[in-house]
Design a protein around this nucleic acid. Structure first.
Lengths: 128, 128
DNA sequence: GCCTTAGTTGACGTTAACGTAAACGGCAGC
DNA sequence: GCTGCCGTTTACGTTAACGTCAACTAAGGC
């Protein structure tokens, strides 16, 4: 148990506002403890926050990030429940792989534009 | 010049609504021609629509997708403008690479969860 | 005791990206 | 000539993810 974080610490560490952090709590994603009237965030709260922000960078909604975080914590259950769980994992995997492809193509297209641009610059400085 | 598309054709091809397509036009992303009172979409309209949807899958806003599409069409300009252009490309590239990393990690974590789940299932069927 | 500096709750405001509904035009088929 | 069906414009509605503001409390410094 390391020292807990205050809300402003997390906010500045991750470059978000305290309002945002409280909003995530309101949505049930974070469950900090209280000391007097102040919130205290544990390491695991911090991890969850990190996961949320990672999801955000990939364009996932809070709801989706929430589901993904749930996928990180396999719970025991009967065989059927575990199958549902495995299917969900598979779905997310497909989605992520699709994103990988999209990114590959975008990077290639950006590279093409860059090449054209550089060629034009080189040509220009040649003729100058 | 191939046969132009009607709005419902594009909608069903991409699995979106006609309202969405009209919305993109409203935002200036698409500029279909008109025949009488109907919209006619060209191949290039279709390409742009594809790019928008790709951006969406990666969590980009319409505004961002718009900027990325602009990056695909290098315009001539003076050296300074071209430098700005190259910088923007570089920025987007960094963002995409960050997303690649995020995806790698997520995929790994999903894999871990899957392994745990499978191990539990195997164990269970063993003891049965 | 007063001020400043976090922090709190509660409420209303805002923006993007569409959804939805109303009222209308045009044409193909019967 | 009426019925669908596809399309149009206009306009108001909706949801997510916060921003912003007000009014308040609790702790620490001088």
């Amino acid at each position: 148990m390391s020292k807990p974080y205050r809300i402003s610490e997390l906010a500045s560490e991750f470059g978000i506002t305290t309002r945002t952090i409280r909003f995530y709590e309101e949505k049930g994603l974070l469950t900090p403890s209280r000391q007097a009237n102040s919130r205290l965030y544990s390491d695991s709260d911090r991890v969850i926050l990190k996961l949320i922000l990672r999801g955000k960078r990939l364009g996932f909604s809070l709801q989706e990030s929430c589901e993904i975080i749930a996928l990180y914590n396999p719970q025991q259950g009967n065989e059927k429940q575990l199958q549902v769980f495995l299917n969900k994992i598979q779905q997310k995997r497909q989605q992520l792989i699709q994103q990988q492809h999209d990114i590959e193509i975008m990077l290639q297209e950006l590279k093409n534009s860059e090449q054209q641009c550089l060629a034009y610059l080189a040509n220009k400085s040649n003729s100058a």
